[in-house]
Design a protein around this nucleic acid. Structure first.
Lengths: 316, 316
DNA sequence: CAAGCGCCTGTTAGCGATAACAAAAGGAAA
DNA sequence: TTTCCTTTTGTTATCGCTAACAGGCGCTTG
């Protein structure tokens, strides 16, 4: 294994100079820097992460908490995880996944937390290391999320522009910030266009939204678009409509929200508000690492603009 | 932070004795062990992973390679990942995710690899650290997988027992071990019952299997069951059948394979061969850690029996 | 009863990196 | 020219843990 010392010898400098080239390059002359870089390249030097961690009193590990049942979990966590992993890799950090709440909090430098609901607040407050939350919250925790409000705004605007006369929002029956934001985007946009917002809410299961269409089929005239708070709900709506041989997208439009995986297994394929989940994961990681570097100073919130993906469930 | 020395002082022994209690308990008298355990508990001692790693010339990190496009990836990787994470946690290992092949192989003690296809063989051979593969292979790499053959055997037996007269296998159009095994389970079982196995293959997309039903609708008499090589294909079959108002499960049965996520968003819900993915992940991790402990000695293969989940797409 | 062996515990020396201090080297000001 | 900073580089000690060796003890054995 190539160590700092090897590089130092090759470059005829001391270990510290090499270390400084890596961590505080400003303190070293350009001349020496060149020498050191050349030596590092020649020897294909890879810093030893464990040694670095020990010397810095760090662990180079961050823990990722999923405070939700994994089985019911949306597949997009996979993408989130990849984004996080990429963000951590940039700074040679590794990852530990944690599901059960009472897990060991030690041997890590910080936490990324997802699936946090209102009831988790107390637990979050007790954390002693830097933490970043994935998902909007209104308790002041640093977070990264999709701009949910903007997402439904875009979808609603699109549906209006395509001349659907009546718009219905199918929401998720939870009292959480992300849902409020999605509803707000819909409501505000409708009001700006002097249209009447209609909202229904149910648990996030496709068979419930399917059932909902079956139960209320006669209520919905042609030329209605359903703006859904998730692809899961949207899939059920599509199935319900298909069951009544409704013409999608001509007579009825359906917009999903998420854009990970599920939108592709529907038929017709779903138009959806696609969250840049992987990018969000990377941003979570970066925010956390920065927070660690700044010994825990607040990072605020980061909202990422989603992308409208128009497919066969909405008029083109 | 509580260190070995703190524990040693409290227990009136040397650091080495404490270290030995942790790593080689056989070398220490019971009497001292009691003292040390008591001290560790009193102080709530947590070993410093970085220090351990450094002293052992390890990294306490393993890398998880996904040699597949993530976007098209089955959601079950999430569960696999959780299993792996749990298995690694038991030995205080952390995880790094790797997607691009030419990534850094350093700063890790071993690899878990998934999505490896025949063409990856050469690359696998060049790896210099212990590796375990998730997924059947016939090149001698240590692996863990579902017992695919047994899975389709069970599904086929079930369909026969429920008196479906004609069985059709919908396979995935790839030349990989897992697919051969799934087909073999079907074929062997059919032959044992003196029935004629029919097999169709296509790429693993729900709209292809849906199309397949639409194109061949007249070929399939009532009382046919479709044994599919994936839930994705099964979902398409269900949609195709529903489109012709076929009676599921009375006239037509559909069996999926995987049992992660997708089976639940279908309507009717899919009967499926459920892979114990999380358990497999844990076993991958354990196998790899054991392999590392044994300086890379071969571990062989491990096939895990899947579970038949009977839901609304098959007769009860 | 001294030599020799085994068992258990302690001492020492590192793993590879970094912070903190120390020491040169160079330049500006007196 | 001398003194005193400032900048750049080197030296030392340390992070927490473990392998390897050393030493003390009791027991067997010729």
């Amino acid at each position: 294994m190539i160590t700092l010392s090897d590089v130092a010898k090759k470059a005829n400098v001391s270990k510290m100079t090499v270390s400084r080239v890596i961590n505080h390059p400003g303190q070293v002359t350009d001349e020496l820097k060149q020498l050191v870089f050349a030596a590092m390249k020649d020897l294909d030097y890879r810093p030893n992460v464990a040694a670095k961690a020990l010397a810095n009193n760090r662990s180079q590990v961050i823990k990722f908490f999923i405070l939700e049942d994994i089985d019911t979990t949306e597949p997009y966590y996979m993408n989130l995880l990849f984004g996080i992993a990429k963000g951590l890799d940039e700074k040679q950090y590794a990852l530990q996944l944690v599901t059960s709440r009472n897990y060991d909090l030690g041997n890590s430098d910080g936490y990324i937390i997802t699936g946090a609901r209102a009831k988790d607040q107390e637990w979050l407050d007790r954390l002693e290391k830097p933490a970043v939350v994935f998902g909007e919250n209104r308790y002041g925790y640093d977070f990264v999320d999709t701009d949910n409000k903007q997402g439904t705004t875009m979808a609603t605007e699109y549906a209006i522009a395509k001349n659907y006369q009546s718009l219905v929002f199918i929401g998720i029956d939870v009292k959480e910030a992300f849902e409020y934001s999605r509803e707000a985007g819909f409501i505000n946009t409708m009001q700006q266009h002097q249209m009447i917002p209609k909202i229904y809410r149910m648990a996030n299961h496709s068979h419930l939204s399917e059932q909902f269409i079956n139960d209320n089929w006669q209520k919905f005239a042609r030329n209605t678009a359903f703006i859904c708070a998730s692809d899961r709900l949207a899939i059920g709506i599509v199935r319900g409509l298909a069951h009544h041989d409704a013409a999608i997208p001509n007579d009825f439009g359906v917009f999903g929200f998420d854009g990970v995986f599920l939108d592709q297994v529907s038929n017709p394929k779903l138009a959806t508000v696609k969250q840049p989940i992987q990018e969000i994961g990377r941003l979570c990681a970066r925010m956390l690492l920065q927070k660690i570097a700044q010994s825990g100073s607040p990072q605020g919130e980061l909202l990422v603009t989603p992308e409208l993906v128009i497919r066969d469930s909405m008029r083109k």
